[in-house]
Computed example of a mutant assay.
Amino acid sequence: MEPVPDPTFDAGTYGRSFADVYDSWYPADATTTGAVEEVARLAGPGGGVLELGVGTGRLALPLAERGFAVTGIDAAAPMLDQLSAKDPEAQVVRALADVGAPDGTEAFAPWPDGPFDVVLAACNLICNLTDARAQADCIAGAAARLRPGGHLVVEAFVPAPLTAGPQLAASEVRADAVVLIATDADPETGVVVGQHVELRDGVPARLRPWRIRVAAPEEIDAWAAAAGLELVARRETWGPDGPPSDGLVSTYRRP
């Protein structure tokens, strides 16, 4: 039996929840620089890059400033609004993806034509798609837009065993604020529903909902192989000698 989609979550939920704080919560750092360097190396001088889940442009803008032809798509309009504010001359060609079905299966429709030298799915983008079918479709769509010899780069955390049922943890504790993370995981499906709960003195509580489906490296490999891609590298760093990633960086090549 097919799972019943939850209409309160879709591929744009994360972006809508965190757009206003994304740059302050996740500022550019050495990992950002390493990711940009690795994508630049794979794309080659003046190459074309497509970033899935471009967000506020943390990676796309530095690449565009270095002369790469960068296209970014995102399922959350508030994220693209933040990017537009930082990129008024539209160095990054950007488009709002049609989220479509609540299960996220249309997360990146319509796709840009391409072809591209690199398609980038960074920062656990693949896990923000809410079921395995959507994740497989994303990999297939990316593969179809690579030129021969092009690369798909997927950064995704290494999944730990999931514990069923609600969990609560504190991610930030200050004199004037507390940020809690509430989660509810389903080990059978790999789906985790969460809320970042912000409690700030004198300010109404703020809920930032999100939903992910944990994708194991073996699953991603299988989807890539089915799309005609070959795994050429998997590291815990961006590039052979780069800074550490927050997860694993898997690089696939279109023959």
Rank of each mutant, 00 (worst) to 15 (best):
A11V: 05
A11N: 05
A11W: 01
T13F: 01
Y14K: 03
Y14V: 01
G15H: 01
G15C: 04
G15D: 04
R16K: 04
R16W: 02
R16S: 08
R16I: 00
S17R: 00
S17T: 02
F18I: 10
A19M: 08
A19T: 07
D20I: 00
D20L: 00
D20E: 14
D20G: 10
V21R: 02
V21I: 13
V21N: 04
Y22E: 11
Y22C: 07
Y22R: 05
Y22M: 08
D23R: 01
S24Q: 13
S24I: 08
S24N: 07
W25C: 00
Y26F: 12
Y26V: 11
Y26C: 09
P27M: 07
P27G: 11
P27Q: 11
D29H: 03
D29K: 01
D29E: 07
D29I: 00
A30D: 15
A30Q: 15
A30S: 15
A30M: 09
A30G: 15
T31W: 06
T31E: 15
T32R: 03
T32N: 08
T33A: 15
T33W: 00
G34I: 00
A35G: 14
V36N: 09
E37W: 01
E38A: 13
E38M: 11
V39G: 12
V39L: 14
V39M: 12
A40L: 10
A40P: 13
A40F: 06
A40V: 10
R41M: 07
L42H: 13
A43C: 10
A43D: 11
A43P: 13
G44W: 07
G44N: 11
P45K: 05
P45Q: 13
G47D: 12
G47R: 04
G47N: 12
G48L: 05
G48M: 05
G48C: 09
G48A: 15
G48F: 04
V49C: 10
E51C: 05
E51W: 03
E51V: 02
L52V: 15
G53L: 03
G53H: 04
G53P: 11
G53K: 00
G55N: 07
G55A: 12
G55W: 02
G55I: 03
G55K: 03
T56A: 14
T56W: 01
R58F: 01
L59E: 14
L59P: 09
A60T: 07
A60V: 02
L61Y: 09
L63T: 12
L63H: 08
L63P: 14
A64D: 13
A64P: 11
A64N: 12
E65C: 08
E65N: 11
E65D: 15
R66Y: 05
G67Q: 08
F68P: 13
F68N: 13
A69Y: 03
A69C: 10
A69V: 02
A69Q: 14
T71S: 10
T71C: 04
T71P: 08
T71W: 09
T71D: 07
G72A: 06
G72P: 09
G72E: 09
I73A: 12
D74E: 09
A75K: 01
A75H: 05
A75P: 11
A76T: 03
A77I: 04
P78M: 00
P78E: 01
M79I: 02
M79Y: 02
L80R: 03
Q82R: 14
L83H: 12
L83W: 07
L83P: 14
